[in-house]
C-alpha cells in the first residue's frame, strides 16, 4: 500500500469514515462512507465536501487513486448527458403511448381500427390467461433461434470453404450474388410444397433469408485480414489451415460479431415471413389471423410482443459481442 494511501486510510480512521481497501489486477480500489453515502473508487467523492476534500488531497498525491474536482465535474457532466438521453427516450415512448390511448378514449381514432394500449394490454392478459400466449411465443422463438443458429453455423462453414479455395469462391460468386438479390419470399410456394406446412418450412425460410448475408459478411471479414500478418505467417511456413485458425478466424472476430447482429434481424424477418406464408401457430400467425378477422387488438398485441423479443434477442447478441471483444483485448 503506497504511503499517501496509508495517510488517507489513517485520515478515514481518525474521522470514523468507513473505509475498505482492495487490490486486484494491480488496480487499487477503495470504498468509504460519509454519512449515508458510500463512495467507491475515486469517481464519487463529492458527498461531503470538506471531508472528501481532505481525503481527495491526500489521494491526489497518487494520481491513480483520486481525480481532481474538474475531472469529477467532467465525469458528472457526461453522466448527466447520458441520463438526459435516456429520459428523453422514455418520455417519447410514454408520450406516444399516452397520446394513442387518449385519442382512442376520446374518440379521435376508432379503437376498432387502431386498437389502444389498454386494449393491447387486456388482449395480452387474455392470451396469457388462455395459456396460448407462451405457446405462440415459444413457437416463433424456436423457429427464429433455430434458423439463426443454422444460418450462422452453416454460413460460417461455407465462408471458410470459400476462403480456403479461391477457385470455388470464383465459381460460386455469381450464385451468391443472385441468391442475395432474390426476394426469398418468392420461394414461398416452393418451400410449402417441398417442406410441408410445419415449422421445418419456416425454419428453412429463416435460414434462407439470413444465410447469404452471413456468408458474404464473414467472407468479407476473412478477406480483409491484414496482408502483412498473412505474409508473416507464410514466412513462418504456415499452411492454409494454420493461417485460418491462428490468424484469419481471430482477426475477423469483430466482423463476425457484427454479422451476428445483422443475422438476428434477418432471422426475425425470415421466421415472421414464413409464418405469414404458412403456419398454424406463432406470432406471425396471430398477426395474419388477427388481420383476417379484423381483430386489430390481436395484431397490435402480437406486434408489441414481437418488438420486445426482437429487441431482447438483439440486446443479448450485443452483450455477447461486448464480452467477446473485451476478452479479446
Amino acid at each position: 500500500m503506497p504511503e499517501s494511501f496509508k495517510l488517507a486510510r489513517q485520515y478515514a480512521a481518525n474521522n470514523k469514515i468507513y473505509f475498505k481497501y482492495g487490490q486486484k489486477n494491480r488496480r487499487i480500489s477503495f470504498k468509504f462512507q460519509i454519512g449515508g453515502t458510500i463512495c467507491r473508487n475515486y469517481l464519487c467523492m463529492g458527498g461531503a465536501p470538506p471531508l472528501c476534500e481532505a481525503v481527495r488531497n491526500t489521494l491526489m498525491k497518487h494520481k491513480k487513486y483520486a481525480c481532481s474536482l474538474q475531472h469529477e465535474q467532467y465525469l458528472k457532466k457526461i453522466r448527466r448527458n447520458k441520463l438526459i438521453v435516456h429520459a428523453v427516450r422514455a418520455a417519447i415512448l410514454l408520450g406516444l403511448v399516452g397520446l394513442w390511448e387518449l385519442c382512442a378514449q376520446v374518440g379521435v381514432f376508432d379503437p376498432f381500427i387502431t386498437s389502444s394500449p389498454s386494449r393491447v394490454a387486456s388482449t395480452i392478459a387474455d392470451l396469457a390467461a388462455a395459456g396460448t400466449l407462451f405457446y405462440h411465443i415459444g413457437i416463433t422463438l424456436m423457429e427464429t433461434v433455430a434458423g439463426f443458429f443454422i444460418a450462422v453455423v452453416l454460413g460460417y462453414a461455407i465462408a471458410v470453404a470459400l476462403w480456403l479455395n479461391e477457385h470455388i469462391r470464383a465459381v460460386f460468386e455469381p450464385y451468391i450474388v443472385v441468391l442475395n438479390a432474390l426476394p426469398k419470399i418468392a420461394l414461398g410456394p416452393l418451400i410449402i410444397i417441398w417442406m410441408g406446412t410445419g415449422y421445418t418450412a419456416i425454419i428453412f425460410m429463416t435460414v434462407l433469408v439470413s444465410i447469404i448475408v452471413c456468408i458474404m459478411n464473414v467472407l468479407a471479414g476473412f478477406v480483409a485480414v491484414d496482408k502483412t500478418k498473412q505474409l508473416l505467417l507464410r514466412s513462418m511456413g504456415a499452411n492454409k489451415f494454420a493461417m485460418l485458425v491462428k490468424l484469419v478466424m481471430p482477426a475477423s472476430l469483430p466482423a463476425f460479431m457484427n454479422t451476428l447482429k445483422v443475422a438476428v434481424g434477418l432471422a426475425w424477418i425470415g421466421s415472421i415471413m414464413g409464418e405469414y406464408i404458412v403456419s398454424r401457430a406463432g406470432l406471425g400467425y396471430l398477426i395474419v389471423y388477427g388481420g383476417q378477422v379484423f381483430k386489430l387488438d390481436l395484431v397490435m398485441a402480437a406486434t408489441f410482443i414481437l418488438c420486445l423479443l426482437a429487441g431482447g434477442m438483439y440486446a443479448i447478441v450485443a452483450i455477447i459481442e461486448k464480452i467477446v471483444i473485451k476478452r479479446r483485448g
Binding site: L233, S235, G237, K246, L247, R328
Partner: peptide, 28 residues
C-alpha cells in the same frame, strides 16, 4: 532456419505479448 521481420510489427492484437512471441513456435 530463417526468420522474417517486416516493415510493421504485425503483432496480433488479440494475443498477449507472450502469446505473440510463441506464435512461430506454434506454427513450426
Amino acid at each position: 532456419q530463417f526468420g522474417y521481420m517486416l516493415q510493421t510489427d504485425a503483432l496480433f492484437e488479440w494475443r498477449t505479448v507472450e502469446q505473440n512471441i510463441f506464435l512461430p513456435l506454434e506454427i513450426k
